[in-house]
Design a protein around this nucleic acid. Structure first.
Length: 133
DNA sequence: TCCTTGACTCAGA
DNA sequence: CTCTGAGCCAAGG
């Protein structure tokens, strides 16, 4: 079955790619967020896909995978590169509530500071603090 | 068949 | 900070 999602084109092996996305997202700890682009970069480009193509399509494929996210995957911890929620309508509100419940803070403009709450942030920075802690 | 619409990102203005 | 356009591709009205 071809799945009911409609990402911008699909990777060579849609099912396998989505599985990798979900597995990666499951590794995001509570109180942290990641981005579609970051998830994409953590997954190697499928065979036959050039680095350039993957750079522009990857994030969208991740978005497509998230649209069909199964239970048990912290989908709410994935936001766009600007640190803002990409969903619209009710879902967006729900996502914001779930994240706030984990201790994540939003700016007045509805943006998350990825330097503070981003997953695997710069450990080089002298300030070692755990997200949401 | 044409046009719109996606859980994206980046560079500009 | 907000808005636009480009890059990319397919399904549905």
């Amino acid at each position: 079955m071809v799945t009911a999602l409609a990402p911008f084109s699909s990777p060579p092996n849609p099912d396998e790619f989505r599985l990798l996305v979900w597995k990666t997202v499951q590794q995001i700890p509570p109180g942290c967020v990641s981005t579609y682009g970051q998830i994409a970069r953590m997954i190697p480009a499928p065979g036959g896909i050039s680095g350039d193509s993957y750079r522009s399509l990857g994030p969208r494929w991740v978005g497509g995978a998230m649209a069909a996210c199964p239970q048990g995957v912290p989908w709410q911890r994935v936001v766009n590169s600007q640190g803002k929620i990409s969903l619209r309508g009710e879902s967006a509100v729900h996502q914001k509530e779930l994240l706030e419940a984990e201790g994540i803070e939003f700016s007045p403009a509805g943006k998350i500071d990825l330097q503070r709450f981003g997953w695997q942030k710069n450990i080089n920075k002298s300030t070692l603090r755990f997200p949401g802690f």
